[in-house]
Each structure stands twice: as C-alpha cells, then as structure tokens.
C-alpha cells in the first residue's frame, strides 16, 4: 500500500495522479456505501425483535355471546389485551347518534358507518388521546356531556356513537373488524 501516499513531485504523472485519485475516491465511496448498507441490514433484526412476536399476533380474535346483554347495558371484553366496549343501545341513543350534524364533528363519521346492526355498538374502549379507558360502561359512571363516554385523564367527551365531541382526543373511538357469526354471537378480529 505504499502508493496510498503518492508523492506529488513527478511532473510527468500529472494525469495518472488524477486518475489514481478518482479511482481511490471511487473505491473509498463504494466501500463506505456497501459497508453502510450491510450495517443497516445487519441492524434490522435487532430493531425488528421489538415488534409484536408471532404468538402475540396469533391472539387475534375473540368470540362474544351477546344474548345476555339487555337493552341499555354495556359489557367490556378483552381483545388483543385491549378493552372492547359492546353496548346494546336504546332507541333514543340510536336516534340521537343518527341526528348529529356531521359538520360539528372533529372526526366526521356517520353513525351508520360505525355499526353493522344499529342496536349493537362495538368499538375499542381506548381513548384516542393518550390511551386511557373512558368511563361510561357502568350504570353509575359519568357519561360526559353527550351521553356516551367520558375520559377522566384529560377530559375527552364521546357521544352515543363513540365519536369524539369535545376535549383533546383527535379521533373517534375506533371500530374493530368484527362479524356476526349468529344473531347473538359476534367474532371480533
């Protein structure tokens, strides 16, 4: 490797020196690029190991029997470790949810798009602000200014369709993928 510090004194080799310089630059940069790409690829497994593992992903669906839930009652089931709110809505609640002016909603969505059967409201009971569980499932709970759910952490109010109406939360309570297996059994996930 004695030529890495090529002396500049050889007047005749001017062009050759420039060629040499270019060639060495090329080798330097391609080596660096290959090294960087290789390092990035090698780092990925160490990053990806933190993503949900196969067994975590496998716990994907939950079946729920709805037959025992009376009108006006709610239950909370666990799906993927999160609470899922299932509410057997009253006719009043369905009506008030349907009548809302969409332009007044921070996250506009019709009630019809948020349910498969209007009497069954099924959604993930995790506040979209910072992940607390809103109150409103038990009969004694405060339900907020819109008769639905109220998050005590930072004061978000949800309506009878689980839509955000007031407070810091940016989005409606999300509706998970679900299907009715029979008239009274629902499969979430």
């Amino acid at each position: 490797m004695s030529d890495t510090a090529a002396p500049t004194g050889h007047a005749v080799s001017g062009n050759a020196e420039i060629d040499d310089q270019t060639r060495r630059d090329f080798l330097l940069w391609t080596t660096a690029a290959v090294g960087a790409a290789g390092t990035a690829i090698a780092v990925w497994p160490f990053v990806d190991q933190m993503n949900p593992a196969a067994d975590t992903l496998a716990l994907a669906s939950t079946e729920v029997d709805l037959s025992s839930i009376a009108v006006g009652q709610s239950i909370t089931v666990v799906w993927r470790g999160k609470p899922v709110f299932i509410r057997h809505r009253t006719a009043d609640e369905i009506k008030s949810a349907a009548e809302v002016d969409l332009t007044k909603l921070p996250d506009p969505a019709t009630d019809k798009d948020r349910v498969k059967k209007p009497e069954w409201l099924i959604m993930v009971g995790v506040c979209t602000h910072l992940g607390c569980i809103p109150l409103g499932q038990k009969t004694g709970d405060t339900k907020g200014e819109f008769g639905g759910w109220f998050c005590p952490c930072h004061g978000s109010h949800y309506d009878t369709s689980g839509r955000i109406r007031k407070g810091p939360a940016p989005n409606n309570l999300p509706v998970p993928g679900y299907e009715f297996v029979t008239d009274t059994t629902v499969k979430i996930g």
């Binding site: 933190m50 993503n51 975590t56």
Partner: peptide, 17 residues
C-alpha cells in the same frame, strides 16, 4: 407505538424491555 410495546397494548414484552 406497537414497536415500543411489542404488542397492541403495554404488556409483558413492554415490561421486559
């Protein structure tokens, strides 16, 4: 957030890491 948790909520993988 899922990457930080290693799941869909704060759970055992989160506690371990």
């Amino acid at each position: 957030v899922k990457w930080l948790w290693g799941g869909f909520v704060v759970d055992n993988p989160t506690l371990n890491r």
